[in-house]
C-alpha cells in the first residue's frame, strides 16, 4: 500500500480529515522550501503538495503564477525539485509528497527518467494538471511501475461517466476542483460541492480531496464535513509572496496559517 493510501487509512480510522498543503518549489528562494515543508508538517499537514514551477501555468490564478515567476527567477528546475524532496526525506520518511505541475517540465526530463528519480528520492504521487487520462498512455504505466500514485482532477463540469473513467486511472486520491475557475479565484459554494461529492463518491472508491477556493479555517472546516481531505494552496502561496523579501520568516508564518486551518478542521472532526 502506498504512503498516500496508508495515510488516508490511518486518518479514517482516527475519524480525521486529511489536510493537504500546497507550495511552489523554490518560491521565493530554493533554500527555504525544505524548511517550510517541515514547518507545515509540524503545524499539521498530513500530505504535502509541491508545485513544479512552469513558465505558463494556465490553470492557475495570479497567486501561483507569481509564485512560479519567483521560483523561475532562481532557475528552479524539475531536477532541483527532486533534490528538495530528497533533502526533505533525510528527516521525514512518513509524510506523503505529491508533485503537482504541468506536462512540459516532465517531458523535458523524460517520463521514464522522471519516474525513476521520483521513486528514488521518495515522491509518492504526481498530479499533472494538463494531462488528462486520455493523454496518459505512456505516462501511467511508467508511474505505476515505479510505485508513484497518479492523481487526477475531477471538476464541477465532469460528467458521471467521466468520473468513473477518471477513477479507473487514478491512484492515491481524487482531487476535486471545487470551483469553475483557476486556483484561488473565488469562494466555493459548500452546498454545491456537497452535491457533487455525493455523485463522485458513487463513482469512486478512492478518497477525495477538495481544493481551489479554500481560504480560511471556516471554509476548511466546512469542506472537512464532506470530503476526505482539504487542500490549501493559494492562501499559503499568497503568504509566501507577502514575505518574499524576508524568506527567513516564512517557515513560521506559513505554519501559523496552516495551524489555523488544522485547528478549525480538528474542531469540526471532534464535533462530528
Amino acid at each position: 500500500m502506498s504512503r498516500i493510501s496508508q495515510c488516508f487509512k490511518k486518518l479514517k480510522a482516527d475519524g480525521q480529515t486529511a489536510l493537504i498543503s500546497y507550495i511552489t518549489a523554490g518560491d521565493p528562494e530554493p533554500w527555504v522550501t525544505v524548511p517550510i515543508l517541515h514547518a507545515l508538517v509540524d503545524a499539521g499537514a498530513d500530505i504535502l503538495e509541491l508545485g513544479i514551477p512552469f513558465s505558463d501555468p494556465m490553470s492557475d490564478g495570479p497567486a501561483i503564477q507569481k509564485a512560479c515567476e519567483r521560483a523561475l527567477k532562481n532557475d528552479v528546475s524539475i531536477h532541483n525539485v527532486l533534490d528538495m524532496v530528497a533533502a526533505f526525506r533525510k528527516k521525514n520518511t512518513e509524510t506523503p509528497i505529491v508533485l503537482m505541475g504541468y506536462a512540459n517540465p516532465l517531458e523535458s526530463i523524460g517520463y521514464e527518467k522522471f519516474a525513476q528519480r521520483a521513486q528514488e528520492v521518495g515522491v509518492d504521487g504526481v498530479l499533472t494538471v494538463d494531462m488528462p487520462p486520455e493523454e496518459s498512455d505512456e505516462f501511467l504505466p511508467l508511474m505505476n511501475k515505479h510505485g508513484i500514485d497518479t492523481i487526477f482532477l475531477v471538476a464541477p463540469t465532469t460528467s458521471l461517466e467521466r468520473m468513473a473513467y477518471i477513477s479507473e486511472h487514478a491512484k492515491g486520491f481524487i482531487y476535486y476542483v471545487s470551483i469553475k475557475g483557476v486556483t484561488g479565484s473565488a469562494v466555493l459554494d459548500v452546498t454545491e460541492v456537497a452535491d457533487k461529492m455525493l455523485e463522485l463518491k458513487k463513482n469512486t472508491n478512492l478518497p477525495v480531496g477538495v481544493g481551489f477556493g479554500i481560504r480560511d479555517g471556516k471554509s476548511a472546516a466546512a469542506i472537512s464535513e464532506i470530503a476526505d481531505a482539504v487542500v490549501v494552496g493559494s492562501t499559503l502561496v499568497s503568504c509566501i509572496g507577502e514575505h518574499a523579501k524576508r524568506p527567513e520568516e516564512l517557515p513560521a508564518a506559513v505554519a501559523a496559517l496552516l495551524a489555523e486551518m488544522r485547528h478549525a478542521v480538528n474542531a469540526r472532526d471532534v464535533a462530528r
Partner: peptide, 20 residues
C-alpha cells in the same frame, strides 16, 4: 479520432475544460 497528428496534437487541458 483522439486529435493526434502522429505524435503531435492531442487534448492537454485541465479537467474543467474537458467536457467543453
Amino acid at each position: 479520432d483522439r486529435g493526434h497528428f502522429g505524435q503531435f496534437g492531442g487534448r492537454f487541458v485541465g479537467e474543467t475544460l474537458m467536457e467543453a
